[in-house]
Structures are given as structure tokens and as C-alpha cells.
């Protein structure tokens, strides 16, 4: 019961956090907390097999799938707090509260007298016990579950499949497109410049410098620029001067184009 009293508040808080968190990623992580806590509770209640399944299938597979889809859809997308359906939020909370109270009242009523415990059923081992029941009484349901899983896999494949409407561009097409872009818009033909390489910074968030000393925007990933988590070279330069106080401030200016070209 100690585990329960420790975990129960954690789970409730995590669940409430799930509902309240604005970023979907946070929701997923909080859900992971709830699930792992649940797994522990399963173990507490003499269900070691389900404890393992909960960790492996739910937390390991399903939740990772969620995160994967979140990455596809866009991690940054956070919900706006404005409710679009009038009265929905208030009604949901009130109804939820009422429902919860009723449910708690209901289950608190349930009393089956003495708790039997699973020590007898698990006498030959929990997994063996489950297997014995699963492959005898629930055999048909088990087989149907197999069919369900196959169908679900097929369905997901059908849903995710996208018809190709235009022929796939070949390498020659791409090259021709590049040349056309250059002819029409003067777009640079060659590869984009790499990030700047400095004495103390050579990460992808460091822009290269153009010959006139200004940062080259194309040397950075668009995503990093959008996030605003890039370093500005002049800023870094002053940092460097302040720390080192040597002549190194010249080096970035000379290196940057060379670094860009040298790569």
C-alpha cells in the first residue's frame, strides 16, 4: 500500500498535467509517467506479466508511436487556449466533476467482502496461470485478436499510403531544374555553405561569415533559425575578445569564407 499512496498522487497530478499542458510533447511525457506508475501498481497487485506488458507495449511501443506522430505533425504546435465551442469547457468540467463524483461514489460502494488475493491462482507462476486461461477459455478471443491486429496493420498501411500523382523526379530532372532556377532567378547553383567553424564554436547553430563580415543566413538550418536558437557571429566575436583578448577576432573573419569554401 505504500507504493500506492506514493504513486497515486503522482499519477493524479500527472494526469491533471496532461489535461492542462499546452504542448503535446509534455502531455506524452506525463502520460508516460502515469503508465509507468500504473505498471508498478500492476506489479503490486500480483500481475507481473501485465507489469512487463504495460512497460513494453504501452510505454515502449504505443507511447513511442505517439511521439513519432507528434514529430511528424510538428512538435512546436501548441494548443491555443481559446475555446471555440461556446460553453464546452465549462460544461465538460462540470459534467466531468459530476461524473467523477458519481463514479467514485459507485465504486466506493462496491465491497466484495474479503479480498481473495491471487496467491492461489499464481501458485504455478503468474505467466503460466495466464497462459493456461488464455489458451483454454479465451482461445477464440485470442485468435480473433490476431485477426484484429492484422486488420489494423493493413488499415494503417492503406490510410498512410499516398498515390503518386506526378512522376518521380529523376536526377537529371533535378539538375535541369537547378539550372533553370539559376537562369531565371539567379539562384546559387552549388551546395549551401556549411556552418561557421571557429576556434570555440563549430556547431550547426553557428553561422558562417560572408566576405563583408556579415553572417550567411543560408549556412544555418531553417528550423534553428525559426526557433531563434542560433548564435550570432558578432556576439560570439565580442565574447571571444572579452574572454581571450587576443588577435583571434581576425580569425573568424578570414576563416569563415575559407571554411565555407574549404568544406
Amino acid at each position: 500500500m505504500i507504493a500506492f499512496w506514493i504513486l497515486a498522487p503522482v499519477m493524479v497530478v500527472a494526469a491533471l498535467g496532461m489535461v492542462l499542458a499546452r504542448k503535446a510533447v509534455h502531455c506524452a511525457l506525463l502520460l508516460a509517467v502515469v503508465m509507468i506508475s500504473l505498471a508498478v501498481l500492476y506489479a503490486v497487485q500480483d500481475a507481473p506479466f501485465l507489469f512487463a506488458v504495460q512497460i513494453i507495449v504501452y510505454t515502449g511501443a504505443i507511447l513511442m508511436l505517439f511521439l513519432f506522430v507528434l514529430m511528424l505533425v510538428g512538435v512546436d504546435a501548441s494548443d491555443s487556449v481559446v475555446e471555440t465551442i461556446r460553453g464546452q469547457r465549462l460544461a465538460s468540467v462540470l459534467l466531468g466533476l459530476g461524473f467523477g463524483v458519481l463514479l467514485v461514489l459507485g465504486v466506493a460502494q462496491v465491497s466484495v467482502g474479503t479480498v481473495v488475493g491471487l496467491s492461489e491462482a499464481n501458485a504455478g507462476g503468474n505467466i503460466e496461470g495466464i497462459a493456461a486461461v488464455l489458451f483454454s477459455t479465451y482461445f477464440l478471443a485470442f485468435e480473433v485478436t490476431a485477426a484484429l491486429l492484422i486488420t489494423a496493420a493493413l488499415g494503417a498501411m492503406v490510410l498512410a499510403h499516398r498515390e503518386r500523382l506526378t512522376p518521380k523526379a529523376t536526377q537529371a530532372d533535378l539538375a535541369a531544374q537547378r539550372m533553370r532556377d539559376y537562369a531565371e532567378h539567379g539562384k546559387h547553383l552549388g551546395p549551401l555553405p556549411p556552418p561557421g567553424v571557429y576556434a570555440r564554436h563549430n556547431a550547426v547553430d553557428t553561422p558562417a561569415l560572408l566576405p563583408d563580415g556579415s553572417p550567411a543566413p543560408t549556412s544555418l538550418s531553417r528550423v534553428l533559425t525559426a526557433r531563434g536558437s542560433t548564435l550570432s557571429p558578432p556576439g560570439s566575436a565580442t565574447q571571444v575578445e572579452r574572454i581571450g583578448g587576443s588577435d583571434e577576432d581576425v580569425a573568424p573573419r578570414d576563416d569563415a569564407p575559407e571554411g565555407g569554401a574549404g568544406r
Partner: peptide
């Protein structure tokens, strides 16, 4: 029928609450 699936879900929960209310009342 406003097309918002959440409204429908709200109605569903309301129905479930009613059933629950009946059950609790009976018990």
C-alpha cells in the same frame, strides 16, 4: 448536429452520467 466531435462526446458522457446516476440511485 454542429459537426464538433467533442460536442458529441460531451453528450455521450452526459448519457453515461445519467445511466450512472440511475445505477447509484438504485443501489
Amino acid at each position: 448536429q454542429n459537426g464538433f466531435v467533442r460536442s458529441y462526446a460531451l453528450a455521450l458522457l452526459g448519457g453515461a452520467a445519467l445511466v450512472l446516476l440511475a445505477l447509484v440511485a438504485v443501489s
